[in-house]
Each structure stands twice: as C-alpha cells, then as structure tokens.
Design a protein around this nucleic acid. Structure first.
Length: 508
RNA sequence: GCUCUGGUGGUGUAGUCCGGCCAAUCAUAUCACCCUCUCACGGUGAUGACCAGGGUUCGAAUCCCUGCCGGAGCACCA
C-alpha cells in the first residue's frame, strides 16, 4: 500500500471500506490548520516564550504566545515563559513588566506550564561554563573589543585562545566573584575562528556588568551570560523541543550548536519568522520608543488607545482571542509581514457582535423639538435576538441627531425604534406612517437620543476623545461591558461616574 | 566587504520539497446587489497575484541560471 499515492490509496480504501473513508475525511477536516506542521513531534512538543521584561508588550509580542500556545494545544504539548533578563544595563528589566507580560498572556487566553527568570539561574550558567571550560570549549579573553573584532574578521585567533584550562578557571572564578570591572574581560566560546561566517567566530558567553540588576535577588551578580549562551543552556535544561524566534536570531542556533556539541546535546527544532508591522498607528512597534514617549507624557500610559500595546487593545474591548486568531493567520514565514489592524477587528467583530447589546449615541448632537409621537421608544436590545427584550427610552420634548442625519425642512426621517417624523422648521412632527416609507420611499433610518435623561459620554478613540450623548439606560451597564452604538461602532464601558460615562471605542 | 535568508492579488496565506489535477486556495480588504427599523451581522457577486528575463521540459508558481528588489547577522543588546 505504501507504493500508492494519496489519492490512489483513498480510491482503494473506498472499495474496501467506505465508512473508513468518511472517517478519514472527518479527520482531515479537523486537521486543517492555519499554522504549518511542526517537524519531529513524536517525542512531544514543548516551546517557550523568552521575553526580555523591559516593558509591557506591544501588539507584535502577541504573536509568540498566540502561535506557541496554539501549537501546544494542537500537539497536546506545553509552553513555558522564560524571562531573559540577563542585561541589567542596556536592556534593563522593568520590575513591573514581569507581571504585566504574564497578564497579557493570560488575556490572550493561554497559561504557561512553567515560568522562569534567567536572573534566578546564574549559578546554573556558571556551572555549565565551568564544564565547558573543562571540555576545552571556552576561554577568558582580555582583548579590547576592537582588537578582537579585527582579529576575528581576518580569521585569526587571539593570544588568549590557547590558555590552559586551569588559568581559564581561575580567571572565570574571578569574573564570577566580581573581581573585574565592566569591559575588562569576557569568557568566549571556542567555535571555529576561521568559520566562513564571521558572525559565528568565538562569541562572547559572559561579560562583566557593574550596574546591579534591578531584581534584589540578582543584584549581587556582576558576571552575566549573553543571550546565546544563557538561552541555549536553558532551552536544553527545560526540555524545549521546538524554538520559534525572529530572523534577527538566525545565527543563534548555529552559535549554540557549538555549545551543544561540547555537551553532547541535541539541538531543538527551530523556526524563524520575520517581523510584524501593524498599520494604523503613528508610533513604532518598539518597547523602548513607547517607554520614552509615555514617559515624556505624550501618551497617558501603556493602555492609551493611541498606543499599539496589548493593554490598549484590551482596554478598548478587543478579545484576546481576536488577536490570537489574527496572529495565527500570519503563519510563520521568514519574510516580514504586515498585519492590518482591520484584520484583528474583523476577528473581534465575529466574536462579539452576536452577544453585544445595542444602544444609541450621538456625536455633536443637533437638537430638535418633537411634536406628537408615542412618548417613549422601544428598540430591541439586539436585532437578531428578540428574546433579549427591548430597551425603554422615554422621550420628552426634544431629541438630538447627528449633523449628518439631520433631514432638510420638509423631508422625513425614521427615528430608529421610535417612529416616522417630518421636519417642519426646527421641529420634528410625528407622521404616523408605516415602515413602508422606509422600504419603499427611501426614508433614512437614523439613531438619536432624547435630550432629557441622556447620558454624557466621553468616547476615547485612537484619534482623540469625542464627546457624545448616549441614551438613558447605559448607566446600568458595568465597567468592562461591551456595547454597540448603532451606526457608530463597538465600545467598551470603561468608567461609570455620576457626571459622565467613559467608553473606549473598539472598532466599527 | 563577508555570511545568512526571502520575493504568490491592497494585506495575510495555500500550493513550491516529489513539475501536469493551478486559466492558482482560503481569509481579509474594496465595490455592487440582497436582507434589515444600524452603515453591524448574514447572503450573493465582482475586483485583484505567481519579482523580471532566459533555460530545461510535451508541460514550470514549482527545477536551473542571471538579474532586480527586500530582510537579517558580523555587539562585552535581547
């Protein structure tokens, strides 16, 4: 049977056992995935997100948990979070970011099976460095940075490369004990000094940093591992089977394989993906840029609607699932990808539309007296679900319309859920006509609010705040609830006070 | 300069390994129509792509060559 191709196999099976074909089809349907298959999954799947906790996450960061979380579910595996916080100086960790990141992951709908902090594990790295020295795989080097770079580029070893292990041990111990200052000495991995790719030649594994780590538990260490060493050791020790990382780390696996070879370890499967760009924002998707601008007061904080962070999307009422869906659709290709924010919106709309109650709100309301009419309006809570009941909007002497919806004198308009009106001067006069005028005469149907009793709303959008009035009744919603302002878009109730309701605009 | 690595509609993706079933999949986007007391949701339809040029072949998105364009690394950042 193995000599046959898929379709021939299927045809043959069809003859022998039609039911089995149906089962096969059902299985295939379940097997359809947005993400490509992982290779080598027989021994399980364990992946990791290894963020540097130097700030809360922007939208691009959501891709890692989205994809590895999805893979973990698909292969019945797991994923861990490891904070790669081994640079107390130039990429200094932000103490609040550890929990902020874990919250973001939870909001996206995933739970890591384990959480590590590299800064808790220095002794483990030292231990492995010593083993590596014993294996002849590392040496201490006091070359000035520029000098080594020149030697390296011409494929020449530096004089320190042939030191005996004993000396290297002594010097490394002194590094660990903090007896050197920043820049004085490093521990290098002995790779291949004339490897054709200069990027892989004898890279740095440990260096000295004078600035104490912000975490108290790690503040006494001065000898810090570099990413390629630390991450390589940890991936093996924590049982990671599959690594996904950016194309900027394309050489990491190649560097780390030298270390793995010294230890006799097997390297995990690796997938590289490109960068994600999200449209619709003026700011770069960069933690340090955001930190700077927020610090300078250009934005209100990490959840300002104008800022491309996960916290911002969350506050706007976008479901974590919508972000995950959009990210998973991007796949894992090595080229850079553009993610239109509208894609996240489309997924969100699909998730929330059916269960979100409707309400009226007008921006820049134009006031009209009303004459006649039923005195109160009863539009449905949701047009597709009569069983959810109807709203009750008492109408006093006047209503407000949006400027675009104001009819000309003599024209008619249908106030949604209320009835037909004709404009006479600045008064809307009830005409008591049937809905046929909408169906047959193209009378526009518009939303509105009563002047009396409507609620002052501040709607925060990506383009700034908009003052609105919303129908009475929205006070009864809780903070965190979603609403659809009919003909405007979805909003999330952020804050209810006596004076006003603050909502965040989600999307149309 | 050296070394990696890519290029399918506006966007993302399938197909590329093992050439034909690809006049190229699906989603989103945009437009139109239908439904509708929302411009939401839903339905129907339309728009729109194999980077370029050569070669191999009966046949190329797929293989080969050249070119063009892009991304990344060559840090005591992650």
């Amino acid at each position: 049977m193995n000599g046959l191709d898929e379709s021939a196999k299927r045809d043959r099976l069809e003859e022998l056992d039609p039911e089995a074909v149906e089962e096969l089809d059902a299985e295939e349907e379940e097997d359809e995935h947005d993400l490509p298959d992982l290779s080598n999954t027989d021994d399980g799947v364990k992946m990791r997100a290894a963020p540097n906790p130097n700030g809360p996450w922007h939208i691009g960061h959501a891709r890692m948990p989205a994809v590895i979380g999805t893979y973990a579910e698909r292969y019945d595996g797991e994923f861990i979070v490891r904070f790669d916080d081994t640079d107390p100086e130039t990429k200094r960790p932000d103490l609040d970011a550890y929990d902020a990141i874990l919250e973001d992951i939870e909001y996206l709908g995933f739970e890591p099976s384990e959480v590590y902090r590299a800064s808790d594990r220095l002794d483990i790295y030292y231990e492995h460095a010593r083993e590596l020295i014993d294996a002849g795989g590392a040496y201490t080097c006091t070359c000035p940075q520029g000098d080594f770079s020149e030697l390296k580029n011409s494929g020449e070893a530096c004089p320190h490369r042939e030191k005996d292990a004993e000396t290297v041990h002594e010097e490394f111990d002194a590094m660990v004990d903090g007896e050197y200052d920043s820049g004085d000495v490093v521990l290098r991995v002995r790779t291949d000094i004339d490897h054709k790719n200069p990027a892989l030649r004898d890279f740095v594994a440990f260096r000295m940093i004078d600035t104490p780590h912000p975490r108290e538990e790690a503040a006494d260490y001065r000898c810090w591992p570099m990413l390629d060493f630390q991450s390589g050791i940890d991936d093996h020790l924590t049982g990671v089977t599959h690594i996904i990382r950016g194309i900027d780390l394309q050489d990491s696996a190649k560097k780390q394989r030298f270390v793995y070879d010294y230890f006799g370890w097997e390297y995990p499967e690796v997938v590289h993906w490109g960068h994600v760009q999200v449209d619709a924002y003026d700011v770069k998707l960069s933690t340090s840029t955001l930190k700077e601008k927020i610090g300078a007061g250009e934005y209100d904080g990490w959840d300002d609607p104008r800022v491309p962070t996960i916290k911002s999307l969350r506050r706007r009422g976008i479901r974590g699932q919508a972000i995950v869906d959009a990210m998973v659709e991007l796949g894992t290709s090595t080229s850079d990808v553009d993610l239109p924010i509208s894609n996240i919106y489309a997924h969100n709309r699909e998730l929330v539309d059916d269960e979100t109650d409707r309400a009226f709100a007008v921006r820049e309301g134009v006031r009209f007296e009303v004459a006649g009419g039923p005195g109160s309006a009863h539009p449905p809570v949701h047009p597709d679900h009569e069983d959810r009941g109807e709203r009750d909007i008492p109408v006093g002497d006047s209503v407000m319309l949006e400027p675009d919806d104001v009819p000309e004198v003599g024209e008619r308009v249908w106030l949604k859920g209320f009835g037909p009106f004709g404009r006479e001067g600045d008064t809307l006069v009830y005409t008591d006509e049937s809905i046929d005028i909408v169906r047959e005469k193209d009378v526009p149907v518009v939303h509105w609010v009563p002047t009396d009793g409507s609620v002052s709303v501040r709607m925060r959008t990506m383009d700034g705040d908009v003052a609105c009035f919303a129908e009475p009744g929205i006070e009864s919603y809780d903070e965190g609830d979603l609403l659809q302002f009919e003909r405007i878009g979805f909003v999330r109730i952020d804050e209810q006070t006596d004076r006003e309701t603050v909502v965040y605009f989600t999307h149309e």
